Simulated assay, not measured.
Amino acid sequence: MRLEKEDFDWAAEEGIISPEQAELLWEAFSDRYQEENNNRPRFNFANVAYYFGALIVISAMTWFISLAWESFGGAGMFFVACLYALGFSLTGKNLYFQHNLKIPGGLLFTMAVAMTPLGIYGLQRWSGFWLQGDPGIYRDFYQWIKGSWFFMELGTILTGLIALRFVKFPFLTAPIAFSLWFMSMDLTPLIFGEDDFNYKERALVSFWFGLACLVVAYLIDLRIKRSRGDFSFWLYLFGLMSFWFSLPFLGGGNEWDWFIYGLTNLILMVLSVVLKRRVFMVFGGIGVFSYLSHLSYVVFANSILFPFALTLLGLLIIYLGVLYQCYYQNLARRFDSFIPQELRHLIPKDR
């Protein structure tokens, strides 16, 4: 719950407190939380400029690196990445710790971590050491699945974890989660052979890897209050991407497999409410809609009653949503009463 000055003015108008007390309370709360508000991500010009500038820098040194950079050679790319990372880290340290500017300082540390793939690529190009042969130019890292990229992803994850050890900035988990997502794909040729894997084996690795990321994100969610920063969001997002995109390729395409697919996505929507994570609702909603589309265009392609049945189902869901909104507190208490006391700590709370 966020309090604004209008809330204190309303309390004064209702006679709950005097106008003088309302003014004093507002000033006291403003002074107490001024530092926290300055360092909390908000949609304002300063924060948009911080994140947009960081995105441009990260993109420039990752996706947008051209073939011309290969002319630096492995050693040149390695030292350029190290110099960039050093400069970002020193500037970030000054802003984050000395000037208490957590957001721009934290973003500079994130930019330093994002230099890791380029640095490791340069080092491997310089030394000639690859796990599964020469994978090609650096730009291919973002386009092709190859086992030789593994150390670039592993190094980024380790660098990000080291940075998080000293800098508690949630966005540092973004390059970690992104690298985990790439690793879930590049592990497949390492496990099954460079050219011997098929799409089902790739989907199987992505499924279990994504599920592991979701479990880790959930454990972090339980351990760290979201008021201290959302350190789970990016792991949830990329874990769901790895898990969800693998689902259609795991089955044989029969109706039973489609039903399991729809049910899995329905469970994701329920988890969205339980875990208070909208990202589950997005993926689950798209999946359920895909299953309903399959029913409409394949199973009940010539059915007259199917659209009526879906309309009735949609209206019923809206009605249940109205009931939920009207009786939320009673339903929440009733839901909590069914959960054993020793298991209640496993559900993230509003914080």
Rank of each mutant, 00 (worst) to 15 (best):
D196F: 09
Q329S: 07
D195H: 09
G210R: 02
A54I: 15
Y319R: 02
S71G: 04
A212S: 05
F283S: 01
N265K: 03
Y291W: 14
F64Q: 13
S18D: 06
M77K: 02
W63K: 10
D134H: 14
S272R: 08
L108H: 14
F151L: 09
Y324G: 00
K276D: 07
F280E: 00
D186T: 10
F182W: 09
V216T: 01
F78V: 15
G262K: 02
L222E: 01
A163V: 10
Q341F: 07
H99R: 12
F300T: 12
F52H: 12
G87R: 07
L164P: 05
W208L: 09
I220G: 07
L3I: 15
G314V: 03
Y297R: 13
L331T: 06
F182L: 10
P41C: 15
K200W: 00
N39V: 15
V298A: 15
S242Q: 10
F8M: 10
L172G: 04
Y218P: 01
F97N: 07
R42H: 13
I103P: 01
F72C: 03
F243W: 05
S242D: 11
L123K: 10
D336P: 05
S66L: 12
I191K: 09
E255I: 01
F72Y: 06
F88E: 08
F129R: 14
E201I: 00
S293K: 09
T116W: 07
R278K: 06
Q21R: 04
S246E: 02
L164H: 02
V282D: 01
L219N: 00
F72T: 00
I260E: 08
D9F: 00
P170I: 11
Y84N: 14
I220L: 08
D140N: 12
L187T: 02
L95H: 09
P340S: 11
A49S: 15
C82V: 15
D257H: 02
Y84M: 15
G76S: 06
I162D: 00
P117F: 11
E6Y: 05
V113S: 03
F45D: 14
T173G: 03
Y319L: 09
A81M: 07
V273F: 06
L123D: 08
E70V: 02
K93T: 04
L266K: 06
A174R: 10
K5H: 12
L320N: 02
F192E: 04
A68V: 12
S337V: 03
G92D: 01
L24Y: 08
F249W: 14
N198L: 04
A22V: 03
I176W: 12
W208I: 00
L172W: 02
L250D: 12
F233D: 04
R223N: 14
D31P: 05
A114L: 10
S30G: 11
L211V: 03
R333H: 13
I339Y: 00
W244D: 00
S71I: 09
L172F: 03
F238G: 08
L219G: 05
E342V: 09
E153H: 07
E36A: 10
S206V: 03
Y51F: 15
